[in-house]
Amino acid sequence: MVKTTNAAGTFGCHVLKFELVRSSGEHLICSPEQHSELFRATIGGLGLTGVILWAEFRLRKIVNPFIDMESIRFDSLDEFFELSAASDKDYDYTVSWVDLLIGGDKLCRGKFSRGNHNQDPELAKKYKPKKLPLMVPIDFPSFALNTYTVKAFNEAYYHVQLEKHVSKVVPYDPFFYPLDAIHNWNRIYGKRGFFQYQFVVPFEHGREAMHKCIQHIQQAGEGSFLTVLKQFGHIKSPGMLSFPRPGITLALDFSNHGQRTRTFMNELDRIVEDNGGVLYPAKDARMSPESFKKYYPQWQEFEQYIDPKFSSSFWRRVTEGTDRTTPMYI
């Protein structure tokens, strides 16, 4: 559940240049001024343009590894939008965990996290790396993760914060990477794995689209215990195929129940498409060629920059129609 900043843009916005090696043996320095089109193609380019030997990017100076964090419980989708609007100006990082299985007119509830870098230089001396994380030792049986267990987890996670609004100083790692506290968390989904699903819809369709998507997820009983809702800012990524764009994004994990899950996601695709949204290629395991070409009409421009000796199951699937469905086992 990585926090994002609306004010700074994507990581690609801060890449200054890099060295790209092509299968021909050619070494190219790519930047907005040198080999600029290959630079644009490589950022968000799904690893298809060559091998990056090194990259130079701009960093922000911080005085310690702590974050001034606020966590706010919210009880509806409308309240999430209110918190997002109120947080844009004053907070560098925002994200929310949401429970989509509560039902009713409010559609969801959750915890909205926002934060800024702490400015106390004395705290730099107090940071201690966390001890070894917890571990999921075995693959859970397929029946272990279902609507009832996800609801139970969501209930516990929502109420573990007793107060509506909590402010505290926290280390950067649990703030940015909470899942790192549990190794092999993917084994909760069992041997059949899971599908990652993330989409973004433009602001002008955001409320309506999220209402429809959440209702569809609720009706199908396809809950996800890790569901992230956040908004992307208006700074355009330099990447030719970059996913982030102004709008609202929802990221979920769906247990792999075979054709039932694929049919459900195909129906969810149509809601996303009808509202001007797109899916995230880097997390995708079953996007159709038709959908990909609709989401990313610039794919043909990008294709001319692919290294001729490079390919991937994703690219073959969305351009040739092969390797159509692969569940995630990360």
Rank of each mutant, 00 (worst) to 15 (best):
V2K: 08
K3N: 11
N6D: 11
A8Y: 12
G9W: 01
E19Y: 04
L20R: 01
L20W: 01
V21M: 10
E26H: 10
L28K: 08
P32K: 06
E33Q: 14
Q34R: 03
H35G: 08
S36L: 07
I43D: 01
G44D: 05
G47V: 08
T49I: 00
G50S: 01
L53G: 14
A55Y: 03
F57Y: 13
R58L: 15
I62W: 01
V63W: 08
P65N: 12
I67A: 01
D68A: 07
S71V: 14
F74V: 10
S84M: 12
A85M: 13
S87Q: 01
K89C: 12
D99Y: 03
G104Y: 00
D105Y: 05
D105K: 06
L107D: 03
L107F: 02
L107W: 04
K111N: 12
F112H: 02
S113Q: 11
N118C: 13
N118W: 05
P121A: 06
A124T: 11
K125R: 15
K125G: 11
Y127V: 10
K128S: 14
P129T: 13
P129I: 15
K130W: 10
K131Y: 11
L132F: 10
M135L: 10
D139M: 13
P141A: 06
F143E: 15
A144Y: 05
A144T: 05
Y148Q: 12
V150M: 04
F153E: 04
N154I: 14
N154K: 04
Y157S: 05
L162M: 13
L162G: 11
E163R: 09
S167N: 09
K168Q: 12
K168Y: 11
V169F: 00
P171K: 07
F175Q: 05
P178V: 06
P178E: 12
L179S: 01
L179Y: 02
G190T: 02
G193V: 04
F194D: 01
Q198R: 02
V201D: 06
V201I: 06
F203S: 10
F203K: 11
R207I: 13
R207K: 14
R207A: 13
R207N: 12
A209D: 03
M210L: 12
K212M: 09
K212G: 04
C213Q: 11
I217E: 07
Q218C: 05
Q218M: 06
Q218Y: 09
S224K: 02
K230V: 00
Q231R: 15
F232Y: 14
G233Q: 01
H234W: 08
I235H: 07
S237K: 00
P238S: 15
P238K: 10
P244Q: 08
R245I: 03
T249I: 06
A251E: 09
D253W: 05
H257S: 12
G258I: 07
R260W: 09
T263E: 15
T263K: 13
F264M: 07
F264C: 02
E267R: 09
L268G: 04
I271G: 05
D274T: 12
P281R: 03
K283E: 06
A285S: 15
M287T: 15
K293T: 13
K294Y: 11
P297L: 02
Q298P: 07
D307E: 00
D307A: 02
P308H: 08
K309G: 10
S313F: 11
F314P: 12
V318D: 00
G321L: 04
T326A: 07
T326H: 07
P327M: 00
